[in-house]
Design a protein around this nucleic acid. Structure first.
Lengths: 236, 236
DNA sequence: CCAAAAGTGTTTTAGCTACACCCATGA
DNA sequence: TCATGGGTGTAGCTAAAACACTTTTGG
């Protein structure tokens, strides 16, 4: 990958994406580490001149995860001058490119639109881009210090996710198409960071009339097999 | 006012402000009409290079209303290519400036951050800027067609306002410091566009423990005088 | 004393919690 | 038949809505 070209993009505006996955016991997000800098950051990017903002984010998430269809929602736009850090940006570009110049548009101030995505952890193979050594999952209570106030952006993303959790049963986007009630409860508990009553949770979910019940899932264990559920497609 | 200068501002990014007031019977917003064009639009503006996004909006709202302190909240960022309209922008600039040129940065595409403000209608004297003939209040169910998808922005602002109404008793920002329970109820009814039960409303508001009761307000009418209330300052 | 509006008490209802119980499963 | 986890029934609690009643005000 080359450095994104100034003439192809909108200036002074970027996006950052908080990509959530659920790995069976914890809520995690994707972070990337830049080559030879020790810098961690959220995956982000820029908007092309003839591209919708939403499409730019979808494009960026697809490049990193391979996923075409995903749950994606904008949650806040970060516009403080303090969030820019030209020195860090210079270090990153310098570490990657011989063609380093002192006055790249990338060193300018950026206003950044925050998005969060909910994806099925199992479906993803994280792919680093040319600027980054690695892209990996980090549990949300174990996030390293990040560039550009990205820790703050993650805070706000989690807060928004918590507030919106009940609308439209968003948690199902973190699970496979069919899932047990217990798995759904674990997702809710990971997001809300609190234990929920088993029976109350089951009843509340069923009362929403958004879940369809399928065959049982036999685990081979010595207890009743749970039903599998899926999201009712006609309620989308 | 001159045309804002390119070298002072961030490019490709603007804000639009939906300024709400309550005039005793209806929820209204401020719209401006550009000179000699018949174009109506939301008051908006641009961000200076060393200015926080929030501060840019505060500055713009102050210029139009004279208000220094106000309730202001970002609600969504609009980034579709379809929302730009260079032709309209050219018409506006052409109608106002001899120094018209074909390639102003203002004709470029903009991503716009939407903010809404809640203000005390009585405290405001709307002031048109140099580009606009007038700035006036319009009831929210009587909004003319606007430029740049601004009708959509207003829809989204009202939707956000409805969803957030219960948090922090936001409605009080539309009223004077002291107000009757009936006035507060009218504000809520105007925002939600539905009638609320009088006694249920009173009890719910008082149960929040956010209102302080003051002296009665005698209207001269032949009925019990209502108490005046104010927002408890220690709960801010 | 009357009418109108404000404030409060009371009854009813709906939703939620907690607990208990039963069911299914494989050892 | 036992232990384990899943599903549901039921009693009790709490918050909210509906209605009625009382209070205050000026004619």
């Amino acid at each position: 990958m080359d450095i994104p070209k100034k003439e192809d993009h909108l200036l002074n505006i970027s996006y950052d994406s908080v990509i959530f996955g659920f790995s069976g016991d914890a809520l995690k997000i994707l972070l990337l580490e830049y080559h030879d800098t020790g810098f961690f950051a959220l995956p982000g990017g820029f908007v092309r001149k003839n591209e919708n903002l939403n499409d730019a984010v979808i494009r960026g998430v697809k490049e990193r995860t391979g996923l075409e269809k995903l749950f994606l929602e904008q949650f806040h736009t970060f516009g403080n001058t303090s969030r820019s850090d030209a020195a860090a940006m210079k270090t990153i570009i310098k570490a990657n490119h011989d063609s380093y110049t002192e006055d790249s548009w990338l060193f300018d101030r950026f206003i950044s639109v925050g998005y969060y995505a909910l994806i099925d952890y199992a479906k993803v193979s994280p792919t680093p881009d040319a600027l980054s050594d690695s892209i990996d999952w980090y549990a949300i209570d174990d996030i390293p210090p990040l560039l550009f106030e990205h820790n703050l952006i993650i805070e706000k993303a989690i807060e928004t996710l918590r507030n919106n959790l009940n609308k439209k049963l968003m948690g199902i986007n973190l699970l496979p198409d069919k899932f047990t009630m217990k798995a759904l409860q674990q997702v809710h508990e990971a997001i809300l960071d609190e234990k929920l009553g088993r029976t109350a949770f089951q009843r509340k979910m069923l009362s929403l009339d958004l879940l369809e019940r399928h065959e049982k899932q036999f685990s081979g264990k010595a207890h009743k097999a749970p039903y599998l559920y899926s999201f009712k497609s006609d309620k989308a």
